[in-house]
Amino acid sequence: MLARVAYSLYWMGRYLERTEHLARFTKVQYFTSQDAPFSQNLGFVLSSIANLAGMPIDKVEKWDEQQLLYDVILSPDQPLSLLSNLTLARENGRSMRNAISSELWLMINRYYIFARDYDPYYFKTQGLFDFTTKAEEHCALIRGYVDATLTHDETWALIRLGIHLERAAQIARAISCKMYDIFRASNGENDSAMENYSYAILLKLLEAFDMNRKYYKAAPEKKNVIEFLVFNELSPRSIHFNLQQIRYFLKHLGTDNDTAQGQPKAMIKEMLSEFSKLDYEQVEGELQPFINKTLQSIYTIHAKIESLYFRGEDA
């Protein structure tokens, strides 16, 4: 497979996963704030959405609600919007559509056309739920076609690698953003009711609420939420699970092995080894630095993947 095509496949996976995350985060954050038991003014909710979307939150006060949601989701002029990410995913798909199945390309293109042609006025006035729900459905369909129509070889592995690396990063970012929200909302004081509510929302943001309840058979609270989202090895919505997936898909690629220091396979092996020795109690006191460090490690692995596999440079 051409290195350029491999690069496009990997990024297509990342961009698609990012669109789903943006859709789900915006929807959950916006709609759960409508009847939140704790007063969350509009600026607070909007800044939380902007923060996760990677937009500068210091400008939030200047935006109106409709404009912010439009900028995060549907604006073609905002480089971090869902539509911009989807356009990049589709361009990556278009640039190597001969490498994927016609059916998968059709699904990606349909998702793109749906978003591109969505009526901005309807979106701003009443379409947020409809759009974000359908965007999530499009993403689920696309993942299905990735698994069901592609030969499970390098092409498939590269898309899945992109998906899981992006998901691991987005989970870490979502945890980090929510912890920042809690810090802001509590004004530094201990407010366990507000904190537990916020962690329950975090589960919903990551589509992990139901499985968390099923797993713990208890109300969500900081410990079981962080444990579930960071260390659980079976939940597809945990960092640990996605790191395992990254390791699995990396095995399909490249010529490095997991003993080659500083190279992707060795790095992910080391990271997983560290994760398997940790539990909530060990990181509780330094949770934010731990999440930051995890996110940084994921980004470093990404950089090594790019340089070694796609640019042919010695990592």
Binding site: L2, Y309, G312
Partner: peptide, 22 residues
């Protein structure tokens, strides 16, 4: 077959090669 761009190809010893993942 592969769809290549100019930057995907190099020549060595009067032969043309594709730059692949491997």
């Amino acid at each position: 077959i592969e769809l290549v761009e100019g930057s995907d190809l190099i020549t060595k010893d009067n032969k043309v090669y594709m730059k692949t993942l491997h």
